[in-house]
Simulated scan of single mutants.
Amino acid sequence: MANSSNIADEITKALKDYTSEVSEGLEQSKLEVANETVKILKRDSPKSNRKSTKKYGKGWARKKVSTAQVIYNRNKPSLTHLLEKGHAKRGGGRVPGNPHIKPAEKQAIEKYVKKVEKVIKG
């Protein structure tokens, strides 16, 4: 009986070790991908000579919310939708969108999936 108890204890210990390694790996992967995505958004954000657009590009940041890494624009959050999707002009007509968030998001998802697979496989 003592032998089967030892085996159960060893299995439990191995599973706990694996679980903590996977958890740490996933947290590290989230952080790395979030930081890379912030760099991409800073690089690819629309640029013009207007002060507001210069601040917009520099405003990308990340923060941890619960277990997630959230990427946001701290300087000009209200511009994200307008610049990504385009908007109507005051005197009529439209300003075309400049998609820069969606491509960065897609790239981040692909990188994260690859990192998760690598972490789980060990």
Rank of each mutant, 00 (worst) to 15 (best):
Q69S: 07
R90F: 10
H81E: 09
A88Y: 12
P99C: 08
R74K: 15
E84I: 11
P99K: 05
E84F: 08
A68I: 03
G97L: 01
Y72C: 01
R90E: 11
L79E: 09
L79K: 09
K89S: 06
G86E: 12
H100R: 00
H87I: 06
E84W: 09
G97R: 00
G97F: 02
G91N: 14
P77W: 12
G92R: 10
H81G: 07
G93V: 11
T80Y: 07
K89E: 12
H100T: 01
G92N: 06
P99S: 08
V95G: 01
E84S: 09
G91F: 09
G97S: 07
L83M: 10
T80V: 15
E84V: 04
H81T: 09
L83H: 01
E84T: 10
H87R: 12
G86M: 12
G91C: 03
V70A: 04
V70W: 04
V70I: 14
N75L: 13
Q69D: 06
T80W: 06
V95H: 08
R90T: 14
V95N: 08
V70M: 08
S78K: 14
I71Y: 03
K85E: 11
N75W: 04
N75A: 15
G86K: 10
I101K: 00
K85N: 11
R74M: 14
H87A: 07
R94M: 10
L79V: 11
S78R: 15
G92C: 03
A68D: 15
H81S: 13
I101E: 00
G91P: 02
G92P: 03
